[in-house]
C-alpha cells in the first residue's frame, strides 16, 4: 500500500485516497468549438505512460482535497506531490 503525502495532511495510507486519473487535462475553454474527434479525445483518451506520470488524487477519507502527484508507473513510487494550481 502506497504511503501518499497529502500536501495538507501529510503521509497517509493509500486507502484514504481516491485516484483521479491524469492531471493537467484542462476542461476545454469552448467545447462547442471542438470537432467530435477532438471532444472524444478529451473525453476518452489518456496517455498510458511508463515512467513519471502526473496524476490527480483526492484525500477522500481525510481533508477531501484534490491534489496532484507525480508517480513513476514502473516502480509505483510517488516522486512528488503538489497542490492544485501549483506548477507541475
Amino acid at each position: 500500500m502506497l504511503l501518499i503525502r497529502c500536501p495538507w495532511c501529510g503521509p497517509r495510507d493509500e486507502t484514504e485516497f481516491h485516484y483521479g486519473g491524469a492531471a493537467h487535462v484542462a476542461y476545454p475553454s469552448d467545447p462547442a468549438a471542438l470537432s467530435d474527434e477532438e471532444w472524444g479525445r478529451y473525453l476518452f483518451v489518456r496517455e498510458n505512460l511508463k515512467g513519471p506520470f502526473a496524476e490527480r488524487w483526492c484525500h477522500t477519507a481525510g481533508c477531501r482535497r484534490w491534489f496532484n502527484a507525480v508517480r513513476d508507473t514502473l516502480t509505483n513510487e510517488i516522486l512528488r506531490v503538489y497542490r492544485i494550481g501549483e506548477p507541475a
Binding site: 483521479g20 484542462a26 476542461y27 477531501r64 484534490w66 494550481g85
Partner: peptide, 13 residues
C-alpha cells in the same frame, strides 16, 4: 458531493 467538489477544486477554483 464528490463530483461537485472535484469540479470546484480542480477546474473552477
Amino acid at each position: 458531493l464528490d463530483w461537485m467538489e472535484e469540479w470546484l477544486q480542480t477546474e473552477w477554483p
